[in-house]
Design a protein around this nucleic acid. Structure first.
Length: 434
RNA sequence: GGACCUGUGGUGCAGCCUGGAGUGCACGCCGGCCUGUCAAGCCGGAGGUCGCGGGUUCAAAUCCCGUCAGGUCCGCCA
């Protein structure tokens, strides 16, 4: 029978004989008495052995090393002298399930070395918590979308052509021709609307061949994608996303808020609705007024501008989130719908949380003629993506959606210094292993 | 792709500017001591071609050039 007792539950078994399993956290091997701290995913407990009473056990314990895996049977005793929980297990039997060599890393090791030995690094309480939070968010995302009757899809990651620009695509050999790894499920989630689903969502990998050397980029990451039908404008999409995020952060706060505060030091406060919305041109004005001149020539916000905008919103509107809306068409892809009143502007938005861009979304152009014109305007050949244009020729509701970077979301939520810290196994320009 | 920064026992650092024997600190590891520890403590020990190559010099971890590996920020984006 598999392990059924966890360390956090020991308190309910005082006076009983129990069997517990876990990792050796530390061994204090004294002349008369030995103390072994055993760790599992729920906590730590002290195991004690009097050498004189059980020399056979003493010999086994002396041979243990940190991070070895043991199975211990003994009596649970309430013992006020023990600072670790006020209880201990008097060892009656110990089995070494796995003897560990000395670990090549510790909590102080550099990120690079910890990534080399990620399976050891993930054992830390901080990392265990990180991935439980990430799983909670994934589940909340799924629950929320399903509650709106949206259908979960799993779109292909192998594509014959680019969905946006070819610059950031990984090319792979596909029998006797070329294929590409999907940098977004963009086309395929829009297809779901043309296919008659009220809304679709997906949580899956996306691939970006950007040689980006920053703390917020990677070449493969998990994207939370939504596409919803019958929207009136991008406002409907923003409204959906802010309610989704509020729900997800509430769930994280409820289930892990105390642990996050204890382990990482920051409180999880579910955001107030609605999030502020600031049109792009207004955002530019705010940034300029803060005394920062954006050096780039295309008129878009750079990272420093986004941080300044976030600081402005935090100060004047008391909010950590801000939707930047209505980007100029020149800055957005061909599939973003444009305002009928001002064709120079798109019905699009970015979502910035604490100064970091975590989402791009928009209402899509679902009218074939307009779409083809916009594809041409951006310098692409509509015939190369005819399958995509076809989605809109046979009856397709107005629709919109967004993509949310899961690792960026968790990075901001937990105050991590890099997406590498919150990615199970990071992939970047210089990192393809382990 | 651009700018800047880093590379020193298993781990994290100091030493470099102002050249002088691989010098130091913390953690870990090994051994000994220790009557209940709990970040255990005390004593002792092992462990390093100072990323690599070349140059300057009587002498290079230290100065110069090259190279390799990584990081931060920018660009690109989620």
């Amino acid at each position: 029978m598999a392990r059924d007792l966890r360390i956090a539950d020991l308190r309910d078994h005082a006076g009983e004989q129990v069997t517990l399993s876990g990792w050796v956290d530390v061994l204090r091997d004294q002349k008369q008495v030995q103390f072994l701290v055993v760790r599992d995913e729920t906590g730590r407990v002290q195991v004690v052995n009097e050498r004189a009473e059980r020399p056979d056990i003493a010999e086994i314990l002396s041979g243990l090393s940190v991070d070895s895996v043991v199975k211990v049977t003994g009596l649970v005793v309430i013992e006020p002298r023990v600072k670790l929980g006020g209880l201990e297990v008097r060892c009656e039997r110990v089995e070494v399930l796995s003897l560990a060599e000395e670990a090549p890393i510790n909590a102080a090791s550099s990120l690079e070395k910890r990534m080399d030995w990620r399976f050891i690094d993930l054992r830390s309480a901080r990392n265990q918590l990180t991935f439980r939070v990430e799983a909670e968010i994934s589940d909340a995302f799924r629950q929320f979308c399903r509650s709106k009757d949206f259908v979960e899809i799993n779109s292909p990651k192998l594509m014959a052509s680019a969905s946006e620009s070819t610059a950031e695509l990984f090319e792979v050999r596909y029998f006797d021709r070329k294929a590409y790894l999907a940098q977004s499920p963009q086309f395929y989630k829009q297809m779901g609307i043309a296919s008659g689903f009220p809304g679709v969502f997906e949580t899956g990998p996306v691939f970006r061949a950007n040689p980006s050397f920053t703390s917020r980029h990677d070449t493969e990451f998990t994207s939370l994608d939504v596409e919803m039908g019958f929207v009136d404008s991008h406002e409907d999409v923003m409204s959906f996303e802010e309610r989704l995020l509020a729900y997800a952060l509430e769930r994280v706060a409820d289930r892990y808020g105390a642990e996050i505060e204890a382990e990482l030091g920051g409180a999880v406060v579910p955001p107030r609705l609605p999030f502020p919305r600031i049109p792009h041109h207004e955002a530019l004005r705010i940034v300029e007024a803060s005394g920062y001149h954006i050096p780039r020539s295309d008129g878009d916000l750079d990272p420093e501008a986004e941080r300044r905008l976030a600081a402005h919103v935090a100060e004047h509107l008391d909010h950590e989130f801000v939707f930047v809306t209505d980007y100029p068409a020149s800055l957005r892809p061909f599939y973003h719908m444009r305002h009928s009143s001002d064709p120079g502007l798109t019905k699009s938005f970015d979502l910035i949380w604490k100064g970091l861009e975590i989402t791009t979304g928009a209402q899509r152009e679902h009218r074939p003629d307009e779409l083809v014109a916009q594809i041409r305007e951006k310098g692409f050949d509509p015939s190369a993506i005819q399958f995509y244009v076809n989605f809109f020729r046979f009856g397709c509701p107005p629709h919109g959606g967004f993509g949310l970077g899961l690792t960026r979301l968790v990075m901001v939520l937990l105050g991590a210094p890099s997406v590498r810290e919150v990615t199970y196994l990071y992939r970047g320009p210089n990192r393809l292993t382990p």
